[in-house]
Design a protein around this nucleic acid. Structure first.
Lengths: 229, 229
DNA sequence: CTTCGCATAATTTGATCATATTCTTCGCAG
DNA sequence: CTGCGAAGAATATGATCAAATTATGCGAAG
């Protein structure tokens, strides 16, 4: 009775069935949908919709949705209906404050701990990122940009802070694609060069400054793109 | 087949059936158990244990646990077993940094927005708190201390930041009772007077300073109490 | 003869599903 | 315009399967 032979969708299923529980997969899948803008702000997320779309039972889907709502990546729209949250000016302000406070600290810690191997990997990620930008590949931009930052957080060796920042990214995710749709990928902010240099030199203050500017630019861009509506 | 007639346990069931979903209740109950130290650090939290203890089905309990784990209030102990996390020195450092960064901002915002009515209520909470301290009532201390801070967050009118800080409290909760058990309630830090004065005057900087000291004292106490083990 | 160790059995616990129940909403008739 | 009813979606239950931990028992070494 193994019903879910939606063969083309996920090449990971083979590995997956080996170990990971279903709800974990559903969670990760839904999470990246949100993080990379496959879902648009305001869009409704229904349990039954996901059960058919992902070929999973109700229970795992339920749990995945609960996890995401607990993280603020989804919101309860009044009467037991769940949607992707829409960023308001106030939300952006709060999220911006938190990203600045926390990511600056992470950059600082990363600068003190990063290894040459990690610097190299970070350079590769940045190359991929720039390639995506010149090609106008929005999906690539989003994933590589996230990868870049996520690796820095990993270097910072601060699990709890990193997890918190991750949740912040989840809130921005759905809107980022909208932002890119409006502005294209060309004039996207990129303080990554400065950041990379500071990190490779182990200069915590410079890294913190570069991160602050990167975050501020990003926030400003989101605010500008979402203003008129 | 209503098996769980553990009659004396929950007097809320009558009210409960009226409106709120079961999983919500289970969540809130479990949450306050963690927040106010009814569960000790390292203690295992089993789903079936809660079903019998709270008289609820598996699904609501599952969801409650998922929500709490998503917030870091519970942790997955390797092989699909869930426990109350144990604070390490590193955790305390990270949590302390975040509490300082975020609560200072909340205090600042609260000072700019607080109303006389709220000041009055805050004074009452502080009185209750002091009474609990002099009486050595640990449970009362924990709940009233939380209420005091929670009201400040509410005044700050910053939903997302407040929710994040709330999660931080959840992580400290289980250890706080241990701390009180070691030191008693007498020499507990209390910068609440300064904080109250600053808030009632609308002095954001003073409020921020008082909050910083309060948080720092609290962190120091926790660190000291958990050091030897 | 006792004790330690390992392999296997039993119990406990988690994961998933099918199903029933409740609530919301939308359409339709009065 | 209001209220009734049906459809759809979410909540909640209990059963079932799988995994893991604990308990048990047999054999070997001291």
């Amino acid at each position: 009775m193994n019903v879910e032979l939606t063969a083309p969708s996920n090449p990971f299923t083979a590995d997956d069935t080996g170990k990971a529980p279903v709800h974990q997969h559903v969670y990760e899948q839904l999470r990246s949908m949100i993080l990379f803008g496959d879902l648009t702000p305001g869009q409704a997320v229904t349990i039954q919709g996901l059960t058919t779309e992902l070929g999973a039972g109700m229970t795992p889907v339920r749990e995945a949705i609960r996890r995401l709502t607990a993280q603020g990546a989804l919101t309860h729209k009044g009467n037991r209906r769940v949607t992707v949250p829409i960023l308001t000016a106030k939300s952006i302000e709060e999220l911006g404050f938190m990203r600045k406070s926390l990511e600056i600290e992470l950059a600082r810690r990363a600068a003190e701990r990063i290894t040459p191997t990690q610097v190299k990997l970070l350079r590769k990620y940045d190359d991929d990122l720039n390639r995506a930008i010149t090609q106008g590949d929005i999906g690539g931009y989003l994933t590589h940009n996230y990868r870049f930052h996520a690796l820095i957080y990993e270097c910072a060796d601060a699990t709890i802070i990193s997890e918190t920042v991750d949740r912040l990214w989840l809130r921005f995710g759905p809107s980022l694609r909208v932002v890119c749709g409006r502005f294209g990928t060309n004039n996207l902010p990129d303080k990554h060069m400065d950041l990379l240099n500071a990190l490779s030199l182990g200069d915590a203050d410079a890294a913190a400054r570069a991160m602050e500017e990167d975050v501020e630019q990003g926030i400003r861009q989101v605010r500008a793109a979402l203003q008129p509506e």
